[in-house]
């Protein structure tokens, strides 16, 4: 099924070799997820090399969010395996941070920015451990990284959409994970937020972390990501952006939903 798809990254790393799975930060093998009778995504194979910044792209309903949710154990999987550093999620939970879609929660919840970012420390705080000075410093550091240090005491419902998205990213940063899975982090945010978020992601990449983000803006793909995963219920293409971000691949992934004008606009 995957024949003819470029699976070698531009660094020369073989991406589809089973032997590499053992130490790869994030691997998916034969993953199928379905809602009722309809498969949402099927037979997905995917390996994310360390230090990569990967965009997942595809039309609406392609299963991009579902893929991340299945990887994080939020939606049930029909078949296939997901592993992080060669271990199932259960054993690697603290090495993985997930940023859900901003619209998936009710922001009218009675909590402050500080409260939400502190949630990222739940794995070490557990049920009853007191919040220490060091914990508070971690929260402050994460907030500073996304430029929200002045908003710690603000009720989350009083933030703009972009600020809420940055709070979600800060919460994930507090986990100090090695793999970050982000669901539409650039969706409906202002330009300043978009810049803030992509610079945080690029810094994570420089630190050797693996970052995977669901994305929908074709015009920024080449500047944001080094790898691209094109998805439309099944894998269309995966590899370095320079190899995968082609007109043919995009037409295959998006079908008739992508006009010639849009392709022209991004220079393809």
């Amino acid at each position: 099924m995957m024949s003819g798809i470029a699976l070698v990254s531009d660094k020369g790393v073989l991406l589809n070799a089973a032997a590499d799975d053992r130490n790869a930060p994030f691997t998916i093998r034969g993953l199928t997820v379905s809602y009722g009778q309809v498969p949402a995504v099927y037979s997905i194979d995917f390996t994310a090399p360390a230090g990569s910044l990967i965009g997942i792209l595809g039309p609406n309903g392609a299963g991009k969010s579902t893929l991340l949710k299945a990887a994080m154990g939020i939606v049930p999987v029909v078949s296939g395996q997901v592993s992080f550093f060669g271990k199932p999620l259960k054993e690697a939970r603290y090495q993985v941070a997930y940023v859900p879609q901003r619209a998936s929660v009710d922001w009218d919840f009675p909590a402050t920015v500080y409260d939400v970012v502190l949630m990222g420390l739940y794995p070490i705080l557990g049920l009853l451990r007191r919040v220490s000075k060091a914990d508070k410093a971690k929260v402050a550091e994460s907030l500073a990284k996304v430029g929200m240090q002045d908003f710690a005491d603000r009720q989350i419902g009083q933030l703009s959409g972009g600020q809420q998205q940055r709070v979600f990213l800060a919460r994930a940063l507090t986990q100090r994970a090695d793999v970050f899975l982000l669901d539409e982090p650039f969706s409906g945010v202002d330009a300043a937020t978009e810049t803030a978020i992509i610079s945080v992601l690029k810094i994570l990449q420089l630190e050797g972390k693996t970052v995977i983000a669901v994305h929908h803006d074709l015009s920024t793909v080449s500047t944001y990501f080094d790898h691209l995963f094109l998805l439309n219920r099944k894998a269309v293409a995966y590899g370095s952006v320079t190899k995968v971000f082609t007109k043919d691949n995009l037409v295959t992934a998006y079908g008739g939903k992508l006009g010639a004008a849009q392709l022209d606009a991004i220079g393809l």
């Binding site: 949710k69 994080m72 154990g73 939020i74 939970r93 603290y94 993985v96 941070a97 997930y98 859900p100 998936s104 949630m119 990222g120 739940y122 794995p123 919460r171 986990q175």
Partner: peptide
């Protein structure tokens, strides 16, 4: 959903 991912 997030609660699930951090083992809550």
């Amino acid at each position: 959903a997030y609660a699930r991912t951090i083992g809550a």
